[in-house]
Design a protein around this nucleic acid. Structure first.
Lengths: 191, 191, 191, 191
DNA sequence: CATGAATGAGCTTTCATTCAT
DNA sequence: CATGAATGAAAGCTCATTCAT
């Protein structure tokens, strides 16, 4: 639980640098400098740069899941739960733009493809909140009768696109819009 | 007869290598070798690697637009036209997976951010087929009253996510599914 | 005598480009473009870049010698003849700054060292106007009793340094100064 | 004990290689090899090749100034001081031919032109020993009434030319000649 | 003779990784 | 455990030279 301080410094520095400058714009030496640590020290905590990049991604993913579960109650009606998850996700991204940029880069790189493949092959696990939600929605016949992967794309594809547009400054998301957008996504998946 | 023989070879080699290995996994020397051309020759056709990457993107985009316009008739009802564009786009991607992977990488890189910004500022032009379609839909009050950028995300965000999932082999898209998905996207944007 | 037009164009373009940008800032392709000739054509007239560079130097040297002999009369008193040569040289340089810059670069490059060595070994000939002038001056006991090479340095070393300073804009030479400088050089060599 | 071990090795290797082969005949890889260091190591000490070249020049210049000040006494008569500086300079060059060749190349390259310009504009400082000497000489009316730049050329132009000739083996300078030459230069500048 | 597309060796510079201290 | 100087493979790009047309 009490991870060494230095490890956290490195993770944070890597996050900020890579989010801003991309994987190749953030050399290990720069990460070392920003985190106030020697280059060699990074290699005590992470075997190599790839390991660092993957570990960072998984930490971010975990933080998002925690945030989605906050205020999420299995007792609520299904639609309400979906809207909660969708708006929480969008809100997380726009309040953590650096996390978003990192995740986006990760997912569209070879790293992301590997992880997805591993998840498909069962080597890595799919976050349960999503699979449970959609499994239930299909079972209750509230949702369109699509495979999980399609429902996921219909529900979250637009959110991610819009988070990016907001973060890039192409338009501004406010609470009203966020709700309207989540409802539009709901229209896309509801039966 | 076909003058830009070498240029085409280079473009094709770059497309395939970058789609597979990413921008940084495809050095100029590798592109040269794959295209059967000397390194220096690439620089006769493209001032530098960035120019090559951008030119390639614009060629692909143009091909997609041509393909979307094929069978598109302004006389058809609005919904039908939307479904045509959506299914055609999805079909293009799954029949040209390499193009898709290249475009995806491009759009999530600094190159893509620059282009988007230029388009927003009016320096580069937005493909008219999309802007016309949505402008008309909003005017006719068939679509939800959202700004263009949100409609675009709702309509195409899921398609792109699903194209990627199909190409990565996570599931299989067939004609029936494609139509159903396009209709689900329609549900997301229609009033 | 009627050298091909193209050869002259190449020589002139090379002169201007190299004078301004140095040997390595003037690629053959640039020389070709500036002279309105194809790259391959240059190689019809000059076996390679080194040959071009050397040929150009010798053409310039010849022009200077012609200009020094203009108005030079063996009948004049010795001092007057020296002042003529010295002022003519300085005037040539400041009216042909491009020639000066080329020559300067040449003489301080490996090319210049080779040529000097060849002249020492008798493979190349020393311009006669200088050797005759100084030989006579020494014989008449008007000049200090130094070897030719030292007299040459005392007489022309300052001129060349000042031509450079003038051309670089560090100060301005006018007719009065030119005469005064030549006389100061005379003070350096006269007995 | 001697920290900048590698830095010195690099400086020395660069000096020798560039003196012999010119700036462009001494690639970084060659400098690395000669100094027994990896290429990348050079870049720890010098940001790039230009920085290395300039740093090397300034180190040499400083060494020369130190050597000129050795045995120089402000109390001596003016002529004696001038002769000291002139002979010391000539002696330095012929005992350090590699330094001479490097300096010569530097001064006749774009590097040298930049430095001269900076010194003229006051951005870089002119070695005080020269400016003080000539300023005093003019004030005492011992020297011809020329601007500093002309006196400098008259005094040192011949020395530099003769150092080069000696180093290239065109003739041999000995102590007697060196003194005679310095006196001839004195004749050039004295009133 | 003239052309200029093609070549590829060679240049400068970067950066993930190692290891002696 | 921490350090950061050292490494050297590999990248993008240039340009003198060739040769099919």
């Amino acid at each position: 639980m009490n991870k060494p301080d230095k490890r956290d410094e490195v993770i944070q520095a890597a996050l900020e640098l890579i989010a801003e400058k991309g994987f190749h714009g953030a050399p290990m030496s720069m990460i070392a400098e920003k985190s106030g640590v020697a280059v060699g020290t990074i290699y005590r905590y992470f075997e190599n740069k790839d390991v660092l990049i993957n570990a960072l991604y998984h930490e971010l993913e975990e933080k998002i899941l925690v945030s989605l579960r906050d205020g999420y109650s299995a007792g609520e009606p299904f639609r309400k739960r979906f809207l909660h998850v969708a708006t929480a996700l969008l809100r997380y991204f726009i309040t953590h733009p650096i996390h978003f940029r990192y995740i986006e880069q990760y997912q569209h790189s070879p790293y992301g493809a590997s992880l997805r493949r591993d998840r498909l092959l069962g080597k890595a696990n799919i976050p349960s909140i999503f699979s449970e939600l959609f499994a239930e929605g299909v079972a209750q016949q509230v949702l369109k009768d699509f495979p999980f992967i399609i429902l996921f794309a219909l529900a979250f594809g637009p959110l991610i696109a819009l988070a990016r547009d907001h973060i890039l400054g192409f338009f501004v998301l406010d609470d009203v819009l966020i709700t309207q957008i989540a409802e539009a996504c709901w229209d896309g998946i509801k039966r």
